[in-house]
């Protein structure tokens, strides 16, 4: 299948007063056309840094220490600031966790939406002002219908504070899909919402994604959300992708001890289940432990884990980074 995005060996570091934080240490994954890829991980695993690196919105004190991000044949990391702006907001768009901070409180929704639509040369190149306004209006109305907003005209005229959290998140989704991007990065899009609203919003995203055949990277800490919505899953831990594969197989038989631990730690709403925590805490990424970053918390730890970091292995149809599975990486 066609690859929309290919991240290869990406490393990102942050300079802080404590020293250099090695936030991402050589992660590789790809996003296929029309798929929803789940990026799961706990705080500090590097999932949000990954999205920032792809969008080139990393903070100033960060540095891309290596790797490449191929999108439509171009390495996004090598583009000039001007060129990346042509990609960002048009071919790649984003939905964030907190719509309150993303929407500007002093402008009407319509005004903010218009600015986004003007990113599209097909719209901004319309010379006749009346015709342009009409096109924009039509586009906005269409987008709001897509996200099942009852009265688009009213939304266009409202200010962000006049909308509820769920409505705002729909506005963001409408904006993200409006230019028919090939990739959408959704960073914890429903974390701030209540469960019943979360269910609405996720269903909507999935419908639109199917309708427009868009690829979506869904970043979340909620393994339930990924199980219900994604095709493939990448599990991140301490700046690495430790397991990457098809959602069904990964959930049915997790290979990496960290993934196994996560699955055991989850309380379930659908059945009575015992839980078991993973001892210890996430490592400090300024001084990451030698060898495998998970070995201090791993129940299957072996001598080799303490000295040499595992490399990605192809095992049972997926990629796993663990010394337990020592078949060499085949093909690809």
């Amino acid at each position: 299948m066609e690859k929309v995005l290919e991240v290869k060996d990406l490393s990102v570091q942050f300079k802080t007063y404590r020293g250099i934080v090695k936030a991402l240490n050589g992660i590789s994954f790809d996003v296929l056309k029309g798929e929803m890829l789940g990026l799961a991980g706990e705080t500090g695993s590097g999932k949000s840094v990954t999205s920032q690196a792809i969008m080139r919105t990393l903070p100033e004190n960060s540095k891309i220490a290596g790797g490449s991000v191929l999108f439509e044949g171009k390495d996004l990391l090598k583009l000039t600031e001007k060129d990346i702006e042509m990609v960002r907001g048009r071919s790649i768009t984003a939905v964030f966790q907190d719509p309150h901070t993303y929407l500007n409180p002093v402008f009407r929704i319509g005004q903010q939406f218009k600015d986004i639509l003007l990113n599209d040369p097909a719209i901004s190149s319309i010379k006749d002002k009346k015709k342009r306004e009409a096109t924009i209006n039509e586009k906005m109305t269409q987008s709001f219908r897509d996200v099942k907003m009852p009265s688009p005209e009213r939304i266009i005229r409202s200010y962000p504070h006049e909308l509820s959290g769920g409505m705002k998140q729909r506005v963001l989704i409408a904006m993200a899909f409006s230019l028919k991007p090939s990739l959408i990065i959704a960073d914890e899009p429903t974390t701030a919402l209540d469960v019943t609203i979360q269910a609405q919003v996720l269903r909507l995203m999935r419908e639109l994604q199917k309708k427009y055949h868009t690829s979506v990277v869904l970043i979340t800490h909620d393994l339930g959300v990924i199980a219900e919505n994604c095709d493939r899953i990448a599990i991140m831990y301490a700046g690495r992708i430790v397991e990457f594969g098809d959602v069904k197989t990964v959930y049915a038989k997790p290979l990496h001890p960290y993934t196994q631990g996560l699955m055991r730690a989850l309380p379930r709403a659908d059945k009575d289940a015992q839980i078991e925590s993973i001892g210890g805490t996430v490592p400090d990424l300024v001084n990451p432990p030698k060898g495998c970053t998970f070995h201090e918390r791993c129940r299957n730890v072996m001598d080799v884990c303490k000295t040499s970091p595992p490399s990605p292995l192809f095992h049972e149809g997926r990629i796993v980074e663990c010394h337990l599975y020592n078949e060499p990486l085949g093909g690809s």
Partner: peptide, 21 residues
């Protein structure tokens, strides 16, 4: 109950999605 995402792909559950807030 039906809104809670279940960490099991393909899990069967009731399908009630509430409208509105």
């Amino acid at each position: 109950l039906s809104s809670v995402p279940i960490p099991e792909p393909g899990a069967v559950k009731r399908d009630i999605i509430l409208q509105g807030e």
